[in-house]
Design a protein around this nucleic acid. Structure first.
Lengths: 399, 399
DNA sequence: TCTAATTAGTTCTAGGATGAACTTATTCGG
DNA sequence: CCGAATAAGTTCATCCTAGAACTAATTAGA
């Protein structure tokens, strides 16, 4: 094991050697013990032990202290992470009305998290400017320097091809159609690998890594908000589709003669299940501009109108969930989007609606073979954390 | 490498050793050269060479002659298969109106293929009787004996949990609900592993192994016939779902107030895209009972009515295809079912309808990122061949 | 406070995978 | 017809992984 560098171990070519596999596993999962690494990689304990000794010597891996052994007998495990000094990662959310930047180190520690709200359909120039400013601010007061940047992940609030980095026709961000994310942000990060994927797929990575889907290799993320969408994880991999168009549950056509959708088709699920309508109703009711989070907060505080709007949205959203059940029959569905922060107010009607629209009814199969519905654990930084995860996972590599 | 037996090498536990991986790869793919094995398994050429020498010595692997080197320079490859004498596999199709049995050897040679038509909703007792008779007949005149049976695969014409082997509530086979396929057929094959999955998933395995999806790791099978359904292959694995309910494209609810479906819900895709209605129309028109294949044959022979019925079915079937496009955006969709034998008569309106219902339109992405639509290569034994493939792949193991 | 049980992690050796260099078998072009 | 080019397949020394047996560190219970 002569002259290994973290950067090269993180690259996919070196995946086969034990050291490489350990580094990649730590990168993906954060803090782990030697035994957990052994289980996750399939390598023998002895092999992991040998490799770790060397990685510790090279200061690529550091101990973060023994777990306080809560309740379990036996020698407590020593938890290890990649050495945070080894480098940093940047996650960028290019959302429909906001830009967010998270700076994290390779040990999964968030060093900085900032966001800026923008007018809908802001320009690419403004985006580049805001991102550059937020990144400069993120590095201020950190000992981490931009030179140690290992990769940049971009979560995009519209359809993007994760292989080419090009935006498709985008309902919510019309002027971004055809934009090449590599070209736009590449200049800012000279020679640093850039990864990108849509918001939903990034949220799925965040759920898998830190959220409600930990330990699941197969699950669906179902996003309910102004848009309706989601992501598919099969065999631990996010399915992106040949053009990055997988997981667009909201744009399944129910009625070709239905109301027109921003995607250009008619009668999409989104035209029925989007929170746009209910939000407009809330704005009329309260006589002021509102955001989804305002309605959720009011509902949680006990407002009957807001509660009803969210319950109705849950019932409508069950249509898409029924589809997910019939098509995937997944072990787990993580309900994401700002509506998910409403908790049971949303989840109860959603579950009832899922039962109605689903193919497999209660009692058809044992409980162990039923789909679990779970709200996301992230409130508002899921997609951007997923962009960080994109780098840590090397998923959808661009450069 | 002391005392290896083919049976144990085919078992999943031994997967890690090179000999085991080579045997499993040959089992899955049929005939391969050493270089191809090396590429497919990721093992070094030298490792494959050493292991093959031993496997040849043990007569577990045999050469089937050098390729006639069509056009390519360089030393021609020697093609190898598992020794056919090493054992046989049985594939059984338990369809809604037929039972089919295929006997094949481990080198993927079909030794016998027979089927029997039955009345709809035939009893489990009749099924067991017919299967036993067909298997006895299959072994007649073969040097292969039932003792050399390595595994049995069962393709079921209804929803089945591939892990437990239990049938779910089944629209087309009502009296089979809750039947345990292991119990029913296990007695017939003492100690021999039994694998099962639904018809569509088996068809997907057949397409992947011998059919239109060779070389694709991600694709969708979309079945158009009296029922509408399909299968999902992601990362080379068939997605079965937590209860075996994945791929039920036909039972996605479009309109909860729509016509009742045999599944119990209303307004499923199947109620609009099934060939039941058109078939009834054809029967009225010709004044005699007809099957899907009769209509297809007449259409291919030039009958205008039959042609119109199939074209209309293609247009209706595009709705499900649009859903597949929005949800998966797959590189390939294999159109299966008896309607697929109509070729362009079906495929042209289907492609037009796909374009209409799909999210990604012509011109949105380069041609290389567009979904390919392809009819199945199998006319009527796809699912049963897939049941053989189930054994050769050890997918959805039961015992 | 001691012992058994349990889990984490290390050491060492045997056996085996690897990759470089080689041989073998073919096509193509002069 | 011959040599260069190309690709398949083999051999062998080196290095590395795996598994058994070990040590280490903790909890539970007597």
């Amino acid at each position: 094991m002569n002259r290994i560098e973290l950067k090269s171990l993180l690259a996919e070519s070196t995946v086969a050697t034990p050291a490489g596999r350990i580094v990649r596993t730590l990168s993906e999962r954060g803090a782990l013990s030697a035994t957990q690494i052994s289980r996750l990689t399939g390598l023998a304990k002895s092999t992991v032990s040998t490799a770790l000794t060397e990685l510790r010597r090279l200061e690529m891996v550091v101990e973060v202290g023994s777990e306080a052994a809560s309740g379990s007998v036996g020698r407590p495990a020593t938890t290890l992470t990649l050495n945070p000094r080894a480098g940093s990662c940047i996650g960028i959310l290019v959302g429909q009305t906001e830009i967010q930047v998270i700076l994290a180190d390779v040990a999964h520690t968030v060093l900085s998290d900032q966001s800026v709200l923008l007018e809908p359909d802001y320009s690419t120039e403004l985006a580049a400017e805001v991102v550059a400013r937020l990144i400069a601010e993120a590095y201020e007061g950190q000992w981490h320097a931009p030179e140690g940047l290992l990769g940049v992940g971009i979560a995009v609030g519209g359809p993007v091809n994760p292989v080419t980095g090009k935006m498709l026709r985008a309902g919510g961000m019309p002027s971004w159609a055809g934009v090449d994310m590599r070209e736009l942000f590449g200049a800012m990060f000279d020679g640093v690998p850039i990864f990108c994927d849509n918001e939903s797929n990034c949220a799925a990575i965040a759920e898998m890594t830190w959220g409600a889907a930990q330990g699941f290799d197969n699950f669906i993320v179902y996003t309910l908000d102004l848009g309706v969408g989601g992501a598919i994880v099969a065999g631990g991999q996010v399915l992106t589709g040949i053009a990055g168009g997988a997981g667009e549950f909201g744009h399944v056509v129910l009625d070709p003669e239905g109301p027109p959708c921003r995607c250009g088709n008619r009668g999409c699920i989104e035209t029925y299940a989007s929170f746009r309508g209910p939000l407009a109703e809330a704005e009329r009711h309260f006589g002021r501009p509102m955001r989804t989070t305002d309605v959720v907060e009011l509902a949680l505080a006990g407002d009957a109108t807001c509660r009803r709007l969210i319950e109705e949205a849950g019932a409508a959203g069950g249509h898409g969930l029924g589809l997910i059940g019939s098509v995937f029959n997944p072990p787990l569905v993580v309900v994401s989007g700002r509506l998910a922060t409403a908790g049971d107010i949303l989840m109860k009607p959603l579950a009832a609606s899922f039962e109605r629209y689903g193919l497999i009814k209660h009692g058809d199969v044992p409980d162990s073979a039923r789909t679990i519905l779970r709200p996301s654990r992230f409130t508002d930084n899921g997609a951007c954390m997923g962009a960080v995860g994109l780098v840590l996972r090397h998923h959808g590599r661009l450069q």
